[in-house]
């Protein structure tokens, strides 16, 4: 699916790229938000524009998703390292960024999980979000985030243990 759209977008089709954006925008924004980036939408938008410009450099058309998330992750890290972004965001904007709450998780558990997630190192948080939340394989996460496969595995194992401990304690 992605591969055909990537080929068309690379040939200059903005309609094909719009389809790719529509397919990947929610998982990407959800991932960035869960990974603790307040300005997740801005980062996601910049990542998509960078992806459009960088499409000729993508070697494996089928690997668009991992490549896109990698671009977004690098953008997020570089923005944090760079000049301070506007810190104050009004409440309306924050509201627009809120995620659709899963019915499976109670309010108390949610608060406990959000607190625990925020305490995880950012690499670990990203690995846990992609592997456990979005069902990515370890190899795919390793490819996207540029981390060694062993590191991804240990991040997921440790992150999962810490989050489950919180979840078990809160229930």
């Amino acid at each position: 699916m992605d591969a055909a759209l990537v080929r068309q977008a690379r040939a200059g089709s903005q309609a094909a790229f719009a389809r790719l954006v529509a397919i990947h925008e929610k998982p990407l924004r959800g991932f960035l938000r869960k990974s603790g980036w307040i300005d997740a939408d801005d980062i996601a938008q910049e990542a998509f524009v960078a992806a459009w410009a960088g499409l000729p450099k993508l070697r494996d058309d089928q690997g668009f998703r991992a490549w896109l998330f990698g671009v977004a992750w690098k953008k997020a890290l570089s923005q944090r390292r760079g000049a301070q972004r506007a810190a104050a965001r009004d409440e309306v904007w924050r509201g627009e960024q809120e995620l659709e709450a899963a019915k499976e998780v109670g309010a108390e558990d949610r608060m406990a999980l959000e607190t625990a997630l925020a305490t995880l190192p950012e690499d670990q948080r990203a690995c846990v979000t992609l592997c456990l939340g979005q069902g990515w394989s370890h190899a795919e996460v390793s490819d996207a985030l540029g981390l060694p496969l062993g590191t991804v595995k240990s991040h997921v194992t440790r992150g999962r243990e810490r989050l489950l401990a919180v979840l078990g304690g809160a229930s």
């Binding site: 809120e98 558990d109 999980l113 456990l132 939340g133 979005q134 999962r160 989050l163």
Partner: peptide, 16 residues
């Protein structure tokens, strides 16, 4: 529903 399922649901939440 297991704790793992709850954790996955929480981590897999997407924007509205």
């Amino acid at each position: 529903m297991t704790l793992d399922d709850q954790l996955s649901a929480f981590l897999g939440e997407e924007p509205q």
